[in-house]
């Protein structure tokens, strides 16, 4: 196979410098293989975050030719012959060094979500049909590509008032858990800022786990918010039924 040219963004939060490398690649290589090659042969201190290299841990998120991707899942033979491959870190979060960004904000948001709260006298029996729905959300590997691509965070920088798609997936998981008794709707409407989402679906487009974030998590949550806050008939019904 012919050599491939990589242009890699290096530097700090304040400084950006692109460096170009020629990499002799082997069959079936992914972008992360090439980055490792560059580390071993040319730039031993090139910073990259990765763990499993099997698309299971969600550590090696980056932007390859402008698209948010897992480097371990982006195959080199998907690019055209001779195409230059440009690798940048996630741009929505502050850079630590080279391809590594500080994603701690995501962990801070996660702390605000009310945890699973079963009833005291729960009988631990669950139906697979209920599992099928929520297990989709449990597939999330927390790569934060959805957080990176979401324009509410990326372009409008609403981090203080918008929790982002990853958080909504987690909340959908808890809200639709057959044995959970807590409600996170108030958080969703206010602190979580679900209303900022204009369902343009970029989160779903980039999800490496194929979670239908918009259709199966965000929109159903929006509908639950409608039940709770916007539907006058549902409200009337609640007043009369006393529920």
């Amino acid at each position: 196979m012919p050599d491939v040219t990589f242009r890699i963004s290096t530097g700090s939060a304040e400084q950006n410098e692109e460096k170009t490398y020629r990499v002799p690649v082997a069959e079936g290589w992914v972008v992360l293989d090439a980055v490792h090659y560059i580390q071993a042969h040319e730039a031993p201190d090139l910073a990259v975050r990765w763990n499993c290299k099997a698309a299971k841990c969600g550590s090696c998120s980056a932007e390859v030719n402008g698209k948010p991707k897992l480097m371990c899942k982006t195959r080199l033979d998907d690019f055209a012959d001779g195409e230059e491959i440009v690798v940048y870190p996630l741009k929505t979060f502050p850079r630590i060094k080279d391809l590594v960004t500080d994603v701690s904000w995501n962990y801070e948001v996660a702390k605000k979500i009310k945890p699973f709260t079963p009833a005291k006298d729960t009988k631990w029996s669950m139906d697979q049909r209920d599992m099928d729905r929520v297990q989709e959300f449990r597939k999330c590997i927390e790569c934060f590509l959805c957080q990176d691509v979401c324009h509410v965070l990326r372009n409008h920088d609403k981090k203080p008032e918008f929790a982002g798609p990853r958080s909504f997936v987690r909340i959908a998981n808890l809200e639709m858990h057959p044995l959970d008794t807590a409600s996170r709707l108030d958080f969703l409407k206010n602190e979580g800022g679900l209303g900022y989402c204009n369902i343009t679906k970029c989160c779903t487009e980039v999800c490496p786990e194929d979670i239908h974030i918009t259709d199966n998590a965000i929109i159903p949550l929006k509908e639950r918010l409608v039940d709770e806050y916007y539907d006058p008939i549902a409200k009337l019904f609640k007043v009369f039924s006393g529920k």
Binding site: R49, N51, A54, K56, S59, Y107, I141, E142
Partner: peptide, 11 residues
């Protein structure tokens, strides 16, 4: 030494 939730158990 990694981010939380990335440890090898995940595999």
């Amino acid at each position: 030494k990694s981010l939380l939730g990335k440890a090898h158990t995940v595999m």
